[in-house]
């Protein structure tokens, strides 16, 4: 009685309970990480000592809130810069790829399409080490041959951005390609017939149609970049992004509830961004 199970019956109730249990399982660690941000205690554990916002706003040790913790704030700032760069870059290349694969005709297209999807299934650790090894090799070679130190090829911001860009571009390409496929080509024809130039058509018709997908892809890219750890771990230099800073603290220092406060902050931030991407993707009356 699979499809008819929407009504009553013991099986259907059991099925609903199962789905409910599943969502409790999904939410449990997030609630656990979130709740201790508001516990008035030195440690993120029970018993509950009362509600506080100190882990966000307090400005003195030992309960230094996240908005006064210099290292966390610096990590947040670095993550933000990386994520914005990755988002802009990957949306640009993703848009080009969408036009290439939806409109272009060239030999070996299917092969190239698979190449485009490939980075998504390569483990992030391997992307990290392979890019690190290549960049270091080039930098070493240049140093030996020309006695020139190429600082930007050493672990640091640029390599982190490139490493994340290398697989996030696949995501943005897929999102924007899906939208471009839905485009009704007769709209462009009509504009051409009315005497519009190619650039004009692109600017006034095709790109506005793609805009929701571009924004959504940018938001996804931003979030994936922000939370990336595996690839970043190998490419990071002295400017550590937030995930690395938090990881160091978690492993080396032991956690205080300030990490919970950061978690709450990040969850709220991602929630707002996810909501925005939903709103822009909601289809307006057909353009």
């Amino acid at each position: 009685m699979l499809i008819r199970g929407t009504g009553s019956g013991a099986g259907s109730v059991l099925f609903k309970l199962y789905v409910l249990a599943f969502f409790i399982f999904l939410a449990a660690p997030l609630l656990a990480a979130g709740m201790f941000a508001f516990n008035d205690s030195q440690f993120p554990s029970l018993p509950w000592q009362g509600f506080t916002l100190d882990w966000f706003f307090n400005d003195t040790e030992p309960k230094l809130g996240m908005f006064h913790d210099r290292r966390l704030l610096r990590g947040l700032n670095v993550s933000f810069m990386i994520a914005v760069s990755v988002a802009l870059l990957s949306v640009f290349v993703g848009t080009c790829n969408a036009f290439l694969f939806v409109r272009g005709r060239f030999p070996g297209k299917n092969f190239f399409y698979i190449l485009m999807v490939l980075p998504l299934v390569i483990p992030g650790v391997i992307l990290g080490i392979s890019i690190l090894a290549l960049a270091s090799n080039v930098a070493n070679g240049v140093e030996e041959a020309y006695n020139l130190e190429l600082e930007f090829l050493r672990p640091g911001l640029l390599l982190v951005i490139l490493g994340q860009f290398s697989f996030i571009t696949t995501i943005t390409s897929l999102v924007i390609t899906a939208r471009l496929k839905k485009f009704d080509i007769s709209l462009e024809e009509a504009a051409f017939n009315l005497g519009a130039s190619r650039a004009g058509v692109l600017r006034t018709i095709t790109l506005p149609f793609l805009r929701p997908a571009m924004i959504a892809a940018g938001i996804v890219a931003f979030l994936v970049s922000f939370e990336n750890f595996n690839t970043t771990l190998f490419l990071v230099g002295s400017d550590a992004p937030l995930t690395i800073t938090m990881y160091d603290r978690m492993v080396k220092v032991g956690s205080t509830p300030v990490l919970n406060a950061v978690s709450v902050f990040l969850m709220l931030g991602s929630g707002v961004l996810a909501l925005i991407s939903l709103l822009v993707q909601r289809d307006k009356p057909k353009t």
């Binding site: 656990a32 554990s45 029970l46 995930t243 956690s255």
Partner: peptide, 28 residues
């Protein structure tokens, strides 16, 4: 479907952190 996606927007690190707080010896 949206509920399913929520953990996707939260870093691996925070999810693992949440599990640690739940499961460790002094955990919930």
């Amino acid at each position: 479907f949206m509920l399913c996606l929520i953990p996707l927007w939260v870093s691996d690190l925070i999810r693992a952190f949440g599990w640690i707080l739940l499961l460790r010896e002094s955990g919930i």
